[in-house]
Nucleic acid binder design. Structure first.
Ligand SMILES: [Mn+2]
Ligand SMILES: [Mn+2]
Ligand SMILES: [Zn+2]
Ligand SMILES: [Zn+2]
Lengths: 135, 135
DNA sequence: CCTTTTTTTGTATTCATTACAATTTTGTAT
DNA sequence: ATACAAAATTGTAATGAATACAAAAAAAGG
């Protein structure tokens, strides 16, 4: 099942420009949780006129429409995720990668008097690959 | 039970200067999860010579020694917490306050191949007080 | 005292993000 | 196709939290 960026953008009343389509497609195909600049660096060769501002604008637009979500772990880098389902993240302090962590939704918090709009769970530590390398 | 900042700093081999003591005491007595600048604004009248740099330096030093923890919810504001126990946070999108949320540690994630050093859980939404005001 | 080490301070710098205005592209009607 | 209006993109300037740096002040140990 391969998703259609153009259709999904139209469904949200967002004009499917080439830049927007490629940014969305890239977020769908990567699991690296890239920063805005990562996305710019990746797409710039393919779209030579691409501007960083467009990347930032597009990401903000997509997030507002719940097409993507931002992942904030370090205060100096906002990462983006094409998977908007509630799931956790693991940031490796060694290789700096951010990995997905499945979250069992059994886990319920007692926030009865609040309105919860977003749930964020993340861990920091050493990922399996880096742990092995340490022997 | 009122904690002694001077003693606890000495125990970690950190010289208990007046600035350091007051920053730590303030983080213990407030539950607001202040930013570095909040702390500066609060203590500046009492310590007229206080520098923002000292606040930043001190917070970084304290975090490295696990005396405090930083709470990152928005990518443009690092907040600080004198409570280093694992607990969740709730950021109200209305009044902008960050509240503590008790986290039952029954909740276990299957991260068997990783080394987990930090666990962070936070929510975004509308806090009980703001919800009431909305009638 | 004097000397060395540590801490604090003010200023300069960095860098991710946002603001803004000009240019380009797209959509629609003539 | 052409003309015009609306929307998207772009480059540059501005913002602001955090850090780097070096000088000044304070503390420690004789
Ligand atoms: Mn993810
Ligand atoms: Mn807290
Ligand atoms: Zn790793
Ligand atoms: Zn509120």
């Amino acid at each position: 099942m391969t998703r259609n960026a153009e259709k999904e953008l139209r469904a949200k009343d967002i004009r499917p420009s080439y830049q927007r389509k490629r940014i969305l497609e890239y977020l769908w195909e990567t699991k690296s949780h890239p920063t805005a600049d990562d996305i710019y660096q990746k797409l710039h060769p393919e779209i030579p006129t691409l501007s960083r501002t467009t990347v930032y604008n597009t990401l903000r637009l997509f997030e507002k429409h719940n097409i993507i979500q931002s992942v904030v772990i370090e205060s100096n880098e906002m990462r983006f995720d094409g998977d908007v389902s509630t799931h956790g993240h693991f940031k490796c302090l060694d290789c700096q990668k951010v990995l997905d962590i499945p979250v069992k939704d059994k886990f319920k918090f007692d926030l009865k008097d609040s309105i919860v709009m977003e749930t964020h769970i993340y861990f920091r530590g050493i990922c399996p690959a880096c742990r092995k390398e340490r022997i």
